[in-house]
Amino acid sequence: MALLEGQGLSMAFGGLLALRGVDIAVEERQVVGLLGPNGSGKTTLFNILSGLLHPTAGEIWFGGTRVTNLRPWQISRLGIGRTFQIARPFVHSTVFDNVLVGVTFRSRDHVSRGEDRRREAERLLATVGLAGKASALAHTLSLGERKRLELAMALSTRPTLLLLDELASGLSPKGREEVVRFYGQLKERGLTIFAIEHSFRVLARVADRLLVLDQGAIVADGRPEQVLGSPRVVTAYLGEEE
C-alpha cells in the first residue's frame, strides 16, 4: 500500500464540482508532481489532504490509517506537512516563533525541554538559510524569504509526507535552481513529497512520477517523460507553459 492513498475524492462547492472522483497514490520516498491549469482543483486537493476541507465523497488513507474526516491538527500530528503557494506565516511574530509553533505543538504527548525545542527551531532556520533572520518579524521578509520560512514551518512538525504548493513559482532562475537542489535534499532525508508546480522544467528534473489534473479529474499519470509528451496534457496546457 502506498504511503498516501486517495480513492474517489470529490469536492462540491455549492453546484460547482471542484474534484470529481480523483484517485491518487503516493509511494513512500517518491517525489510525485501534480500539474494542471489554474482552477483544475490542485489546491482543493491539497486542502482536502491536509484536513482544511472535508471531501464530499471519497476516502483518504495515510500510512495505513484512514484520515478522511480528521481535523488539520490530527493530520499534522500523523505526519503530513504542507506549504502554501502564497506564504501564510504568522506575520506579527518573529521568524523564530513561526518555526517554534510546529516544533512545540506537533505532538500531543511530545514531552521535550524548551531548550531542545529552541535548538531544533534554530537548526530548521539554518536548513532553509534563515538563521540570520530569526528575530525579524515575518511581515518584513521578502518573497523569497517567505518561501523559505514557509518550508521551515512545514518541516517543523517533522512530517513524513510534505505537500508543497508551488515552491518554485515567482522565483528567479537562480532561486529555482536552489529549489531543485532542495527537493533533492528533502528526498535524501527520506521524505515523501507531493508537489504542485507550474514549471515543467522543475518537475521534469525532480519528480519520479507526475499526475495531471484537469477540470477536477486526473487526465494523466505516469513517468515525467511519458506525461509531458502526452498530447492530452499539451492540450490542457496550451499557452500555460512559461
Binding site: 481535523r71 491538527w73 501564510r88 509553533v101 510546529g102 514551518m153 512538525t157
Partner: peptide
C-alpha cells in the same frame, strides 16, 4: 511559555496554527 506561543498563533492565523498541530 508555550501558552503564549499557542495564543499568538491562534490569534494570528488559527487555520495555519491548526496545520502545525495546534488544536
Amino acid at each position: 511559555s508555550r501558552l503564549g506561543l499557542a495564543f499568538a498563533a491562534v490569534r494570528e492565523e488559527e487555520e495555519r496554527a491548526s496545520l502545525l498541530g495546534v488544536h
